[in-house]
Design a protein around this nucleic acid. Sequence first.
RNA 1: GGGCGGUUAGCUCAGCUGGGAGAGCACCUGCCUUACACGCAGGGGGUCGCAGGUUCGAGCCCUGCACCGCCCACCA
Length: 800
Amino acid sequence: MLPRYEPRGVEERWQETWEAEGLYNADPDPSRTPYVDAHPPPNVTGELHTGHALQLAIGDTVIRMKRMQGFNTLFQPGYDHAGISTQNVVENVLLAEGTSRQELGREAFEERVWAWLHEYGGKILVQFRRMGASLDYRRTRFTMDDEYVRAVMHFFVHLYRRGWIYRANRIINWCPHHETSLSDLELEHHDVDDTLSTIRYPLADGDGYIAIATVRPATIPADVAVAVHPDDDRYTHLIGREVIVPWVERRVPVIADERVEREFGTGALKITPGHDPTDFAIGRDHGLPEPSCIGPDGRVTAEGLEGLTQKEAEERILDWVKERGQLEGRKHYRHSVAVCERCKTRIEPRISLQWWCAMDEIKQPALQALRERKIVFHPESQHRFAIDSLENAPDWNISRQIWWGHQIPVWTCPDGHLTVEEETPPACAECGSTELTRETDVLDTWFSSALWPFATLGWPEETDDLAYFYPGHLQTTAREIIRLWENRMIFSGLELLGEIPFSDIVIHTTVLARDGRRMSKSLKTGIDPLELIEQYGTDATRYGLMKNSLTQDVRFSDSALEEGSKLSNKLWNAARLIVTACGGAAPAERPSSLEERWILARLSQVQREVERLLGEFDFAHTMDELYHLTFDDFCDWYLEAIKVRLYDGDAGARATATAALERLLKLLHPVMPHVTEEIWSYLPGRRTRLIVAPWPEAGDESEAGALERVQDLAQMFRRSGIVPALEGEERRIFNAVVKPERAKVTGNADAERERLRNEIARAEAMLANDRYVQNAPAEVVAAEREKLERYLRELDAIGD
RNA sequence: GGGCGGUUAGCUCAGCUGGGAGAGCACCUGCCUUACACGCAGGGGGUCGCAGGUUCGAGCCCUGCACCGCCCACCA
């Protein structure tokens, strides 16, 4: 064993061994209790980032503890086809080749995607292995697997037959680059510098004008009205009259609607139902037409402006308006604008025929389960948010006009009858026509994600896996995914299987870049976990990531990983001492001395604490406990105290030391699996791998404080140089650890006496305060008295 | 514009139901003590964002303010 622990090589070796020996495998076994974490499937085109790494560390730590505790653990791996995202990647490849998906056609394009995926996709699972994640890789699922596709089709047909899926023409978010609809949740909002133009619309009867403010003059050709607030005195006399829309010179009415903000702009709003969500809502309520002047590609279609970009059309229209003296002014205006989260193209609100899933009924059981806390969020504060967002969830736009994904299983005959089946039907269900054409839209990626916890287990087939492993337990995810995914898994699970898919949701925090900004590829602020692993090792990276973050988003800091690195090295060297000194001493807890009873009690105490903390998914404090147990208690006190006895060949000390080390390794294994397994392999009499070794029984902890007095006096000795009056075992331990004959004292006795006298004076003053003694709880006062007595005794021990 | 979280040592963060301000890193001092110098021992350093209030006692509770971050949101 080398003096310095070197994770490189060791970690890969154990990762391969564990997997090869089948120790990650989970199979139904009625004699054991399952524990399941269906790990969030990353995008098939993705690469490991810090969020994944943290998520894996958290999930794997819990899974490893549960596995040692005897649960039949299933840590489910897989990846997601990520519709738009993947299509985007492959389209970029095509672009570089000078072609496009339109040129290839749909079938050839899909083949290209598959080909690309076979070559480059799914590599992220290789990176998952480097995090030491004990996923059952045999069970890797992909949301485009044949079985999974069948599950998605089944889900769609199920919802359709329930009457919850319908088709409707509504205004939706349209990405002109991908030429598809997007749900509200797939947008980002960016602040942009824009120009607000004030334009006069002349009254049709030639008597003055009404001025409106707009940031999008290019949509003027599709205006169908001008709206004002019903109580706006400036305009009430104009309601019901008509104005003339510039450029197209069409007469449209002035209407009244409360949704118009009187304070904004001129207080008059041009109504363009075809290109603005608010206008669309107002237009529907007033029964207005819904013309369009912008095509799916974002270019203008209005007469006289065909094929122009919106920018060009805007200039033409503004010139037109200016020539006629109708341009009242233009001013700088900064506001937030929706963009496609994938390509950052500005969203074009557009009326389009889409498939929807009605939410009213399907969400009710989920809301009830959440309100009854059958699912617990960690931290608790996210619980309210989950309920609120589900309560307010609008109908779900589930169709996308892209090519990569699950094609909607709806067929139409020439008469327009719809046939909805899981597999291609032979003929129209209504008229028997065999001339069927399939719906070209695909489903929203999250539609298939919603099935992850049970489609991975074979649903809709009634498999043994499903019966045994469903419902699961743990779910780890980021905050922004709650509405997109968590809520949808919950209502789908309840609807299809009648049970919640998991019991605990850990919302981990966002790790920010070193400078406090968000990690992002485009800003180049990202931190590559593989580089961290290269530098610190997997164990240290796991430790460092979990040490960070609890309630608030936290900046990435290397010092936490360095700490992890030190911990693994410290553990390694402690083991080296015990292994070399004890040789093949069989581990046995037979404490014959105070420090041995103490360390065993401390191990039990910390174990209970770790069990409690991990039960609450409090990872940062778990790291803290383990670090101090290892450094302060195990190494600096216990090992220092028994070192000499180990060298002297004391059989009891050797057996106990080996046993204590075993317990320490077990406590650390869930967090630092590799270094602990490596050390474990050096210990005598090994029967099983540590990964599947039984979690220890926490024992008696009554002597966990037994060394406190010696520790206090040792510190005092180092400050004052005065050897305290200690006897028996306490004297022996003091001499073994502190070595008075060799220790150089840095402080002095006078300073120590001074410190104690000050403490005594403070305590006496507190106890002399009547209001304190009368009002403070009795135990607080009693504790103060004890402290005073202790100070007096210590002062006595070093001589006044 | 809503909702949530934050503001504690030079840096990154802990401080559980109010009871003598903590950790790791960095810094200073002493030690190459035969497990580990990624070590051991000791130390310096903080009006706990600001202003009020409740209390015998406030980092923690209440009110107001100021910054910072995240999520959400149809003022064109």
